[in-house]
Design a protein around this nucleic acid. Structure first.
Lengths: 146, 146
DNA sequence: TTTTAAATAATAATAATTCTTATTTAGGAA
DNA sequence: TTCCTAAATAAGAATTATTATTATTTAAAA
């Protein structure tokens, strides 16, 4: 999603393409590590010293409502946001406090089909997520998915 | 898990079986709806008017450390706790803000096997959770899983 | 029983988030 | 392009959620 695509997306939702919004979204797309509001703030501040923390809170929630970013489900601390809208899951590393993207179309399909077959009465399923929790063996190195 | 089993469990962890702890755990086992600290507090207070909110915070976190209850992963608001330790997943109803238990051994096994087969390098998997997000058709009625 | 380390109540402190309002600005209209 | 206006922002106050502190109480071992 480039700048023009973002602007178009905002316009479609009747939202103004302010400098603050573009910077916040660009930051989210760059970071990729599901940052908190505070982390976005610290990243952006050097280049935008007058931006307000409240604006970042508001901007991110506006994006959630507009369907441009998603909240990340966690068991602790501050809210985290994710600009990766492709169907994907998360690996939670408890010892390093990282949340890493995990993409596996095949697994997603298997689970989706299973649940659709099962049918849940009086309920409309909108999204299915798999959370893989565990810990990095070597916290310094990246995990690698074979 | 009855009272004596709880006492034994606490003793095994070197924790005192205080009245407050027993009441909090009993409440959690009864409620089953993954309550927040505040919800436990309101539920317990009538019968235990001198109990302190801070004690409930502390008690629940003590239970988490002792492995007696688990935190529930959410995208918003206050922390929620779950005393159901059997392997299970959660259905998140966004329109009613409910979190409902979902047990399906077969699905759990399928996903677990799939991920174990895949192997994630430099990472030790401890837990796999499936989150089903959606909305109740009729918010008044329960969902029913066929 | 007595002792004592652990737990609690009460409350202060901190952290995370939301709200309020005066000022600024994006984007449409003239 | 300039003007207009509704929407957005900055700054900071207020609220909510959680954690820390400390004097007092209590479970459970001696």
């Amino acid at each position: 999603m480039d700048f023009e695509a973002i602007k178009a997306h905002l316009a479609k939702k009747g939202l103004k393409a302010t400098h603050q919004r573009l910077v916040v979204l660009q930051c989210l797309l760059m970071l990729k590590n599901h940052p908190s509001v505070e982390q976005v703030y610290e990243k952006i501040r050097p280049g935008n010293p007058t931006i307000s923390l409240g604006t970042i809170y508001k901007t991110l929630e506006t994006f959630v409502e507009a369907g441009i970013v998603q909240r990340v489900s966690t068991k602790e601390g501050a809210m985290k946001y994710d600009a990766n809208l492709s169907r994907h899951d998360h690996i939670y590393s408890t010892n390093t406090q990282e949340i890493i993207d995990f993409e596996d179309e095949e697994l997603s399909k298997i689970v989706e089909n299973y649940i659709n077959k099962k049918r849940i009465g009086n309920f409309k399923v909108n999204d299915i997520r798999i959370q893989i929790e565990g810990e990095k063996i070597n916290p310094e190195k990246d995990i690698d998915i074979i």
